[in-house]
């Protein structure tokens, strides 16, 4: 039995995951907690947020996020991929910055309009 705190939302439910019984999750208040509990024990994932360079003088950085959770151990590799990127303005919120990270189908996308 593994005890976890759900990080899906600010509520922070105390979850219990039973590895011996088909990873049954208890203590969750919503379906997302169940999914988090299962993933956290079998294949922990995180959303990564960071910034990338832009060619704008006024706004030299543009915030980005992964549009889904990626494997936790890939976080630093994902960060490294952002180092060489310079986005040209205008940048639109939702625009893909890096596609299909590590073949997960998850992309880095811009989270802000930068003109």
């Amino acid at each position: 039995m593994k005890e976890l705190i759900c990080i899906t939302c600010p509520r922070g439910c105390h979850l219990k995951v039973d590895e011996e019984n088909g990873y049954e999750v208890t203590g969750n208040s919503c379906p997302r907690g169940k999914e988090y509990g299962y993933n956290e024990v079998t294949n922990p994932k995180r959303v990564v947020t960071s910034t990338v360079r832009t060619n704008s003088r006024e706004y030299p950085r543009c915030p980005v996020k992964t549009n889904g959770a990626i494997p936790k151990e890939k976080m630093f590799d994902a960060m490294k991929l952002l180092d060489d990127i310079v986005l040209a303005v205008p940048i639109y919120c939702g625009e893909k910055v890096i596609e299909n990270l590590f073949d997960t189908g998850i992309d880095f996308v811009a989270t802000k309009d930068v003109q």
Partner: peptide, 24 residues
Amino acid sequence: NQCIHNGFGLHYFKEELTGPEYAG
């Protein structure tokens, strides 16, 4: 604008947004 992490908007928009997205 500087809170680039996610976790905003779960109550109001019923989805998880970053700070700049919420403001946007």
